[in-house]
């Protein structure tokens, strides 16, 4: 088995995951894309484990660990998505703009309560 084949497949999967993370609005779809990226990593790990013939099976064991972590991540991520959905009634990533700087438009006579918080 040439190493190039699985590794190239993994690179393509990773890039597709990147596209999904960047382009999808729905938070659950973003999570799915993250899963794609994790799987690409897994495939990579397995391919190099086979190539190196590691006696300790480091690559495959690490793959197992990544799968476990991915499961935990999906659980937590969905919990967060649900919490966001409860408060905002939406899971569209590009409508969650709380990171933006509050642009103050100074209005005379009224203290800007929003900017202070």
């Amino acid at each position: 088995m040439h190493v190039v084949y699985p590794v190239v497949v993994s690179a393509l999967l990773f890039s597709i995951g990147v596209y999904g993370v960047l382009a999808r609005r729905n938070a659950i779809l973003v999570l799915m894309s993250v899963e794609l990226m994790l799987n690409a990593v897994n495939l990579n790990l397995v391919a190099f484990d086979v190539w190196l013939g590691d006696r300790l099976h480091g690559g495959q064991v690490l793959t197992l660990f990544v799968i476990v972590i991915a499961a935990a991540e999906v659980g937590l991520g969905l919990a967060i998505v649900l919490a966001v959905f409860r408060t905002r009634r939406t899971v569209d990533v590009d409508r969650l703009r709380a990171l933006a700087e509050v642009v103050r438009t100074p209005e005379p006579g009224r203290p800007d309560g929003e900017g202070a918080s």
């Binding site: 190039v4 190239v8 990147v18 382009a23 779809l29 590009d94």
Partner: peptide
């Protein structure tokens, strides 16, 4: 289901793929 920066995302993804595949 796709956000506004779809083309930027596609660009970045293609670039990533190109770099990774080239290197590999």
């Amino acid at each position: 289901l796709d956000s506004g920066n779809r083309w930027a995302a596609a660009l970045v993804a293609v670039a990533t793929a190109a770099v990774l595949v080239t290197v590999i």
